Structure formats: C-alpha cells, structure tokens
Simulated assay, not measured.
Amino acid sequence: MEYKVKIDSFEGPLDLLLHLINKLEIDIYDIPAAEITNQYLLYVNTMHQLELDVASEYLVMAATLIAMKSRSLLPDHSSDEDEYLEEEDPREELTRRLIEYKKYKEAAIKLQEREEERTKLFSRPPADVLFAPSGEGPLNVSIYDMLGAFQKMTRRKKMAVPRQATVRREEISVEARMEVLLKTLKEAKEPVLFEDLFQSNERDELVASFLALLELMKQNEITVTQQGNFADLYVISGGKQ
C-alpha cells in the first residue's frame, strides 16, 4: 500500500513521550527506562505498519531510549568506578527536556485559550454559541490515542482469528474506505464504536480503514471522541465546529 498521510497531530517524539507518561501515570522525575522504551517502540512500530510519515526525530529518540534502557539493565558498578559516579543518568537529561517541552506546551495552550476567549468579545451569530465545545465535554483525541486504540483492536483480532490459509482479496484503496466509512457514519443514529468500523481481519484493509479515518479527520468530515482516559473511542459524522 503506497498511500501515505501526514497530519498536524504529530508534534514530535517529546509529545509522544508526554502522552505515554500521562497515560501510564508515570512520575516524570522517575521514568522507568524499560517500560517507557517498550511503549514508545510499540507506537513507532505501529506508525511504520500504517505507513505514516515518521520524522527522523522519532527514530533518534527511539535510539536514545534503547540506549537508556540498555544502561538500566546493566549491573551497577558504581561502587567500583569513581567515574561512573560522575556520569549523568541519561534519564535526567530526558526529564529536563520533557519538563521544558511541557512548560512551553502548556503556555501555548493558555495562549490559545486566551485567543478563544478574546474572540468571544466580538459579536457572532447566536447559532455558533449552541455548538461551542463545553469545558466538561469529551476529551480531545490525539493521533496517539488513535494509534493506541488501533493497537488494542489488532491484538484482539489476532487472538480471535485462528491461523489458517486464506485467499488474499483485492486490495481496497483508502479513498474507497473513506466513502464507505463516511456513509456508515452518516447513516448511524448515534456515535459508532471505533472498533466497529474495522470489520475485516485482513491487514491491508485494517490499515486502509485507519488511514481513511485519519484523512476524514483531517478533512473535518468526522469527529473522534473519548469520555475519559482509557475509555473507548467513538466516531461521529461531522467535523468540529
């Protein structure tokens, strides 16, 4: 499958690491090297499987995490070598970068909120107010939430389907899946569970469906919602107002 898609939700490896830290409820000042590395590589591998454009900085961070994990698994010789005592724990540098990134990201969010508040000072048609997002509404779903949901869905499908020889069907294009998914969502009377949009067990069709959803999100044709951390994702027709 040659179709590739790149969307603005990819903000870089530090953004992915912060997502994992929040999702796994990890202390940013005491990052478990092995766990965070395994989870990070799982997401990067999923990006490759889906043929998403993965910037080189993701791979550089992957190499850094692997080195950090390898070091954490080595025997502790700190009592034998004075130089080892003076060597900085690579997690400290990563923590500093994450804290700095988090600080600037939070500042950007606050500036965006101020901008949105300022726009409310100008007159607008009353109808717009009815569609304004509520502060207590569903969580914003990121590309990483989508990747995580795709991981869980494909793992369950592999466990449910017996290993047997099958005849490979004709490959379905992303454009074709976009039309089918959009039609399904428009005909649905309520939000559709993310996993219910993946009826096939064929890898190519699963990938095409996922890329189709991403492209529909990019075109503001659909909205993906989540009511809380670790909750299921739901998809509805219509973009964000």
Rank of each mutant, 00 (worst) to 15 (best):
L52V: 01
T64C: 10
S78R: 13
D53T: 13
R71V: 14
A62W: 01
T95N: 06
E83F: 11
E86S: 03
D82K: 10
Y84N: 09
K69N: 15
S56A: 12
A62M: 06
S70A: 03
P90H: 02
S56P: 00
L65V: 13
E86I: 07
E100P: 02
S78C: 08
H48C: 10
Y58L: 10
L50Q: 15
E88H: 05
D76H: 08
L50N: 15
K69E: 13
A63P: 00
H77N: 14
L85H: 00
V60Q: 11
E86Q: 04
L98F: 12
R97H: 02
A62F: 01
M61A: 09
D76E: 05
D89N: 08
L59H: 12
R96M: 02
S78P: 08
S72E: 06
R97L: 02
L94H: 10
A62V: 01
L50C: 15
L59K: 06
S56Q: 10
V60N: 12
K69H: 03
S72T: 08
E87V: 05
L74G: 11
L52R: 00
L74Y: 13
I99A: 00
E92W: 06
P75N: 08
E51Q: 14
L85P: 04
P75Q: 06
R71F: 15
E51R: 15
D80Y: 06
E93F: 01
I66C: 04
L59V: 10
D89C: 01
D76M: 03
E100S: 14
R91L: 09
S79M: 08
S72Q: 09
K69W: 00
E93D: 01
Y84G: 05
D80Q: 08
T64D: 13
A55G: 07
L65H: 14
D82N: 06
M61T: 08
S79W: 03
D76L: 00
L65M: 15
A62H: 02
S78T: 14
S78A: 05
L98P: 12
R96H: 08
E100M: 11
E86C: 03
R71M: 15
